[in-house]
Structure formats: structure tokens, C-alpha cells
Amino acid sequence: MFYGIELSSRLLLGTARYPSPAVLERAIKTSGAEVVTVSLRREGGAGRAGQSFWSFIQSLGLRVLPNTAGCHSVKEAVMTAHMARELFDTPWIKLEVIGDADTLQPDVFGLVEAARILSEEGFEVFPYTTEDLVVADRLVEAGCRVLMPWGAPIGSARGLNNVYGLKSLRAHFPDIPLVVDAGLGVPSHAAAAMELGYDAVLLNTAVAEAGDPVAMARAFALAVEAGRAAFLAQPLEPRDMAQPSTPVIGKAVLGGD
């Protein structure tokens, strides 16, 4: 599914903002996620947080998808990707080049440039992008074999802001794995993305900051499975007029008008 790697779970889960490492671990296990996103930050000589997080990640035995969160320039994102590749020993990189501080909207121009550089350097790039079709085309030209359009701004819990745009993207790229990344709030948002034919969803805050993250991880896992099953079952298109579900042919004529 992703750069030659087949996964059975279509839910990718972030590891940030959980109330405790124990809750994080249970949420990951309950979600069934096989890919978790991770990041990297400065650490001083006395700090041990990074080392204990690294031991925790190793103990999970899952695939990691490091991100370039917080990077606002191509140079920063490319260098962060190199550091992430060495730290986590994977060519996978969730490429974020942020263009706007309030909406955390991707800087799609910088994104395409960074994606090209990193693809040429052997990275397998998962670009966090908008649902813009032309940008998506450029990302594929740059070497991306996965696209991750946002549902809504990161952490906003607004769901799918532009269903039409996401549907167009799916129709335009039938063979590129598409992941809705960011902005999901409740399981019905994830189900909706899967019903559109998206290959997977990536979320973090919706689970981590729920009142009960472990229970919410389960709810999202069920929604992703339901949405995928619905897509494969070829759902109806909405129509304007009613259509009786009970056949009218053979209805008894009982008079009255």
C-alpha cells in the first residue's frame, strides 16, 4: 500500500498529546494501527525524555513515520528529514512544510520543492498537503507515491472541509495511495473519508485529547473498517427526489383519494 509495504490496518496514529505513556500504549494497541507517527526535538546532555521515548517506540514493534512538524522552510524540512532518517532508521518521512502559523496550512510551493529534493535523495515521502489537484500532480511528478491531503487544519476536529475536493483527488489519482491527514474530530469523519475511497486516515489529537483516548481509538478503528467496507460495497449516490423503497407494483387497490 505505501511504497511497497502492505498493511492490514488503514488507521495511522500519532503519538503526541496523550495524558500518559500508558494511555498512549493502550490507545495504539486498541486502534490496531501498524504505523505510528513520531517526531524529533532538541535534547540536552541531561535530558532523557528522547531516550525513553525511543525505547518505548522500539518495544511496540511497529513501523514509524517520522514527521517534519514545525518546519517552515525547505531547508529546515530537508535537514529534519535527514536527522529523522538516521534516528528512526527509515526512508519514510511525513513531509510538512508549514506556510501559515494560524491554520498550519502547508506551504505547497516549499512542499513540492522539498519533496523533489528528498525523493531524489532516496526518501519515501508522505507529503502533508492540501486537496489541491494541481499541487498533488506536482508532488507525484516530484516522486511522491503517497499523498496526504488534509481534512481540515491540524487539531481543528472539523472533519472533511472540502468533500468535493477530496473526491476529485480520489478520482484523479486512482492508483496513488491517498490518506486523509489532519483535522478529523470524530469517527464519522474517518468513516466519511473511507467511504470516499481513501486508502487510510492519519489522526492524533482526536484520540489523544478525547476524554477516554483508548475508547476513542477503538471507535476510530471501527469507523475506518466500516467506511472501507462501505466503499467496497459501492454506496449509492445522493439523489434529489424520493424513490420508494417498497415496490408499488402489486399494491392492493383499496379506494379512497
Binding site: T15, V38, R41, R42, W54
Partner: peptide, 28 residues
């Protein structure tokens, strides 16, 4: 500039150099 682990022993430092050290952490 990124300095890969194998290159650290051969990377000479000069007065005023700025080193960045990062470690794994949680991310979304």
C-alpha cells in the same frame, strides 16, 4: 548542516560552532 553519526569523529570543531542535537519524541 546535518552530520551523520559515522562522520562525527572526523568532524572538526572550531570556536563559536553551533551544534544542534535532537532526539526522538512524540509526534502527530
Amino acid at each position: 548542516r546535518f552530520v551523520a553519526a559515522p562522520a562525527r569523529p572526523s568532524t572538526k570543531l572550531a570556536d563559536g560552532d553551533r551544534i544542534e542535537v535532537v532526539a526522538p519524541m512524540q509526534g502527530g
